[in-house]
Design a protein around this nucleic acid. Structure first.
Lengths: 100, 100
DNA sequence: TCAATTAGTCAGAAAAAGTTGACCAGGTAG
DNA sequence: CTACCTGGTCAACTTTTTCTGACTAATTGA
């Protein structure tokens, strides 16, 4: 509603929050991911939600979308530099969880 | 809907995500916070949302609620040990944002 | 006594997020 | 020609989250 960006971390936080984004992030951190492959890996996810999640993560600059080949259509999503810089944050989060 | 806790970070992530929780977290990290004081600081927030946010953060073990005094009713929310352990994660997040 | 503060709750409405199933276009494999 | 793969889009629906306004109950200060 408002444009008040009181908390600068909110955009970034939003780009890794939600039902599927954390998992997408973690999978993309391992290796490049593809649309239909993700759909199979994320049990219960649907095309639309996945498409939205990927778009938002791309817009927030966490993922890079690249066309690997056009003849057999092959698109890959990889973590951008900005996305990779988030990996240690996630690792820290995981370590915290182990303590509890 | 499902109980599948595929991503263990999701609960924690949820406890600091949403419209008001990141700000509440940051304010509580500075000093103990009070219900009505927060309501004034968080421009545009409403009682209900604030009450929900505080309850969820408390349930996730990030905030401790304590009654400072009963005669003039005075309740304080402070970061728990678990909550404090999240501070470096937020700091890392902020540093990332400065680079962009 | 009247007004304001404390910290909330409750029901209902509105907005945002997530799901469903149909559909599309191009390529490939039989 | 048929069927399945690629990577999506679209409209409509359900679920979750957030907001609104009324209301409670006790305490303080004038």
């Amino acid at each position: 509603m408002e444009a008040k960006d009181e908390c600068p971390a909110q955009g970034l936080l939003k780009a890794v929050s939600g039902k599927w984004k954390p998992q997408i992030f973690q999978l993309a951190a391992e290796s490049p991911v593809r649309f239909n492959a993700l759909l199979r890996q994320l049990q219960g996810a649907n095309k639309q939600s996945l498409a939205n999640a990927l778009k938002e993560m791309e817009e927030e600059g966490l993922l890079d979308k690249s066309i690997v080949s056009e003849k057999p259509l092959h698109i890959e999503y990889t973590l951008s530099a900005r996305g990779q810089s988030l990996i240690p944050v996630f690792r820290q989060l995981e370590q915290l969880l182990e303590g509890y």
